[in-house]
Design a protein around this nucleic acid. Structure first.
Length: 488
RNA sequence: GGAGUGUUCGUCUAGUGGUUAGGACGCUGGCCUCUCACGCCGGUAACAGGGGUUCAACUCCCCUACACUCUACCA
């Protein structure tokens, strides 16, 4: 398997957003290519002109790049066996389709879609096997010529053996065999002058020297037909490997109702690219030991086709978030800064009134507590704006009788703390606790935290006091005292 | 309807004839602690069902059930 250079491709049809299932397929191809120093190729399969969406293609490429799955050959960067966009290879497909006709392995079919529809309805009603009935398969050359001359619309179909069976080997599932009578005659060339997916795909994989085809398992039923196609051309088929589908958390199809489906959505939620790569890699593959947190290099090093399993799996967002939390805490703050800044702006926080150095400190204390970007807003908004309300439950617990007096004392302690550092503040709070006869400073800390942040959770109080700076703390304490006055 | 693929804790998975069926997320008890989060220690929970093969089956074979996919001039 490694004596010839590995060449794999990701061949999306740009008709919508990049689905996590597609992303996983791309990832496995990429990992495999990187592992063996092979080539990872991006090929745009835009043979369906009616469903093609330029914006979808742009978005898809953006998502792939965001994940860091860079290709070695593709429509944007070229390569030796291009073009890498099927709509630019139309004459190639035509040539090969004609070649098959000449060899007698394909034929012109003049059946109209109306006739095909009727045929299917009848087949269904009579509970017969579905599929093209082969009406045009036995047209005489004379008849065919006559109708061609007359300008009738036609498609080109592959002549599939009527008897026997066709089998192929799937790398992760073993031998898969189909009875030829189950296989109907594939359309190779459509009447609009475009090739079908099947023809374009097989011709391109061959011409581009693809050694391993890794794709979604919805392709399993067409693979025997592709095998017939390869045989008809006299070409050696690549190694096939069909990856299982990704299901929604509760089972069933992944759909918008059951959570996010596209890479873009996860990006917007604040999932880090490395998290998504790592998480997706573990869906249908594992390194064989218990390692779960792996960076790109480790993934490449450990990846192996032999450990890919054929079972479909569910996308567990809870675990994704856990993993993202792990990545947040281990990420360098400066890599997080642009995204957090943007998120804060979108939440209408006045990030511009403060400098990046401040934001850096804020991210530092939040990143180890956050699982996605919205956590940064939830846990960080008070760094930018004085709280305009206090958490109700926390008020009940920490703004009890005497809280006002307590805050006044805290205020005076803060005011008189010359050396405004965590150490001195801790010492000062400790002393206040002693004076008041408390066992520890907890009874002072909680009301203070609530007054300056509006919530009952967050970083260590002394850290918070310093980060917010003395002036802000004093202002918020006074505000808290006013609040308690008006409350009584 | 037909064909194909799949089936180990709720979820992701390890396991390739003999294991107290292991790990991770989740949930949960506790520790740590000024709170939250982290971390640490513990708990919870699985071989779809039925037949074989075998001294022995989660592992091999068959059947059933269930899930998913395909059955387009879509990919």
């Amino acid at each position: 398997m490694t004596d010839t250079k590995i060449r794999v491709r990701f061949a999306p049809s740009p008709t919508g957003t990049l689905h996590v299932g597609g992303a996983r397929t791309a990832l496995f191809n990429w990992l495999f290519a990187r592992k063996f120093n092979g080539a990872f190729i991006l090929r745009i399969e835009d043979t369906d002109q009616t469903r093609y969406d330029k914006n979808a293609e742009i978005a898809m490429i953006k998502d792939l790049k965001w994940m860091g799955l860079q290709w070695d050959e593709g429509p944007d960067i070229g390569g030796e066996v291009g073009p890498y966009r099927q709509s630019k290879r139309l004459d190639i497909y035509k040539k090969y389709a004609l070649e098959l006709i000449k060899k007698g392995m394909a034929y012109y079919c003049f059946c109209t879609s109306e006739r095909l529809d009727e045929m299917r309805i009848k087949q269904k009603a009579e509970k017969l096997a579905q599929g093209y009935d082969g009406l045009c398969r036995n047209l005489t050359p004379e008849e065919t010529d006559k109708r061609l001359q007359a300008g009738e619309r036609y498609v080109i179909r592959l002549k599939t053996p009527l008897e026997g069976s066709t089998c192929f080997s799937d790398y992760i599932r073993g031998e898969i065999s189909y009875q030829n009578k189950e296989l109907d005659d594939l359309i190779l060339f459509k009447s609009n002058g475009f090739p079908s997916y099947h023809l374009a795909n097989v011709v391109d994989d061959h011409l581009m020297g693809i050694t391993h085809v890794m794709r979604g398992d919805e392709w399993i039923p067409s693979t025997p037909k592709h095998k017939v196609l390869y045989d008809s051309f006299g070409w050696e088929p690549p190694v096939f490997m069909h990856l299982p589908v990704i299901l929604a958390a509760g089972g069933g199809k992944l759909s918008k109702r059951k959570g996010a489906v596209s890479v873009t959505e996860y990006k917007e939620m604040g999932i880090l690219p490395n998290t998504l790569i790592n998480f997706l890699s573990l869906l249908g593959w594992n390194p064989g030991d218990d390692t779960e947190l792996m960076d790109r290099e480790t993934l490449i090093q450990k990846f192996s086709l032999d450990r890919v399993n054929p079972k479909s799996c569910a996308f567990d967002e809870k675990k994704l978030e856990w993993m993202n939390g792990q990545y947040f805490s281990s990420s360098a703050t400066e890599t997080l800064l642009p995204d957090v800044k943007k998120t804060f702006q979108e939440a209408s926080l006045p990030v511009e009134s403060f400098d990046d150095a401040y934001l850096t400190l804020v991210i530092d204390v939040i990143k180890e507590r956050a699982k996605n970007l919205s956590d940064f807003v939830e846990r960080g908004s008070y760094f930018y704006a004085d709280p305009d309300s206090y958490d109700k439950k926390a008020v009940k617990k920490h703004f009890k009788d005497g809280a006002k007096q307590l805050l006044e004392q805290v205020l005076s302690v803060i005011n008189s703390t010359e050396d405004y550092t965590e150490e001195s503040l801790e010492k000062a709070f400790q002393e206040l606790a002693n004076t008041l006869g408390y066992e520890n400073a907890a009874k002072i800390i909680h009301p203070t935290r609530l007054a300056i942040s509006g919530v009952s959770f967050g970083p260590g109080l002394y850290q918070l006091l310093v980060l917010l700076n003395k002036e802000t703390v004093i202002r918020r304490l006074e505000k808290g005292i006013h609040y308690l006055e008006s409350k009584v």
